[in-house]
Amino acid sequence: MAQQTGGTPRSRLHRIGSLFSNRYGRSTGNRTSSLEVAVVESIAEVRKAQWNGLVERSSRGSVFHRYEWLEAIETGLGYQPRHLTVTKDGNTIGAMPNFVVEIEKTPFDRLSSLYPGFGGPLLPTDTSDSLDRILGAVPAVCRGTAIVHQIRGLDTGYLRYNDAFQSAGYRPFRRECRFLLDLTKGHEGILADMSRTRRRGIERGRDGDVEIVEEELTRETLSRFYRTYERVMERVGGSVYPFSFFEALQEFEDRLLFVTLRIDGEYAGGMLELLDDERDSIHGFFAAVPREYFDDHASELLYDYVFQWGIENGYETYDFGSTNTDFEDGVFRFKEGFGGRAVPILVWERGCSPLWPLVKAGRALYWPYYT
């Protein structure tokens, strides 16, 4: 997958398969066919069609694995890529995207597969040997200020790798969940399963002068959305992604649903949703509603519109995104009220430095139930 022709900067490509060739070489007939692992330090070194073809062939592939999402993270957020690819006889047969991301409240980083979003290995063929190769290569790329490797699986399908992960030194880490809403039961079924509060919010919101518009991703529409997003994140104490990330997502427009709400003719917020055609799911990634429109039930109206859009366009689930696993948390209760099913976010961690146990112990002071 990492190209070495046509002007590709070889200095950014590191092949480490030779470190493991004696252990992992495979015999095929009268010749030896070995697997090699390469470290790709920019997604630009990879052909888009080749990478996305691998995503589409893998049963674990998702919108978060796609070239365009990785490119937006690299160029829009500035996170350093350390993607791993597996080749066999010169053909790419597997991959695991990784980015170096800071560990909050510390001077250290983690190697994450992946963030923002969800990652993990893509291994449609030679799965066992490829997984061994990729996991064996992690210590060589988890270096410098990166003291831990973290794998964030999108769904419970990644449990198929749990034993292999733990055998390689990974340990489960659980502190977040997602709410998944079944869109296949239809709009009336969704409304019937909502809490009375959410359902009445939608009903009351419809009584006003409201209009929901599907917007194009232009600098103007994104700037207006971003200004509201900044205010919302600052109010709740959340991390604010730079505007450059939203600009980078314009290259991914065919996988985005961007809707905004007007109440009495005035802008009342919006939602930027990620369309996961690989999983027939819609991911609620960015929502920005000003506080002054809470009483107009702006959030409920936007969610209800997206639910109906998803049903009409053949999507099977709506994913509300990550939330803390605390039933007293306001965000948890708000999402729960729409009737979705809570599922854990599957995370495995593997220390890459003697400093990791110390940082992990310090983390337990903030999250005492997750060590």
Rank of each mutant, 00 (worst) to 15 (best):
M1E: 05
G7K: 10
P9H: 10
R10M: 08
S11F: 14
G17Y: 09
L19W: 15
S21G: 14
V39E: 14
E41W: 00
E41I: 01
S42D: 14
A44L: 05
R47Q: 09
R47W: 00
A49E: 15
L54R: 05
V55A: 02
R57S: 13
S58N: 03
R60S: 11
V63W: 00
F64Q: 01
E68P: 01
A72N: 05
T75Q: 12
G76C: 07
G76N: 11
Q80F: 01
P81A: 07
L84D: 02
V86Q: 10
K88S: 06
N91H: 13
G94W: 05
A95V: 06
M96N: 00
E104I: 12
T106L: 00
T106W: 02
D109A: 10
L111T: 03
P116F: 02
P116E: 03
P124T: 09
D126K: 13
T127F: 04
T127R: 13
D132F: 10
D132K: 15
L135R: 10
G136D: 08
A140Y: 13
G144I: 13
G144L: 10
I147W: 06
Q150I: 05
L154C: 07
T156M: 14
L159P: 00
R160A: 14
Y161Q: 04
A164I: 01
F165N: 04
R178Q: 12
F179A: 07
G189S: 06
I190S: 02
D193P: 04
M194L: 08
G201A: 13
E203L: 10
R204L: 14
G205C: 11
D207I: 10
V210R: 12
V213L: 13
S223P: 09
Y226A: 04
E230S: 02
M233C: 02
E234I: 09
R235D: 06
G237F: 03
Y241M: 11
S244A: 14
A248T: 10
L257A: 09
F258C: 04
F258P: 03
L261N: 09
L261H: 08
D264I: 03
D264P: 04
Y267N: 01
D276M: 07
D277S: 12
R279I: 02
D280S: 15
G284V: 03
F285A: 06
F285S: 06
A287M: 07
A287D: 01
F294N: 15
D295W: 15
D295N: 15
H297L: 05
E300P: 09
E300D: 13
F307E: 00
W309K: 08
I311F: 01
G314F: 08
G314P: 02
F320N: 06
F320Y: 13
F320C: 14
T325K: 01
E328S: 13
D329Q: 12
R333C: 13
E336K: 14
A342G: 05
V343N: 08
W348Q: 09
P354E: 14
V359T: 11
K360M: 09
Y366V: 13
Y366E: 01
Y366C: 05
W367H: 12
W367V: 14
Y370P: 00
T371K: 15
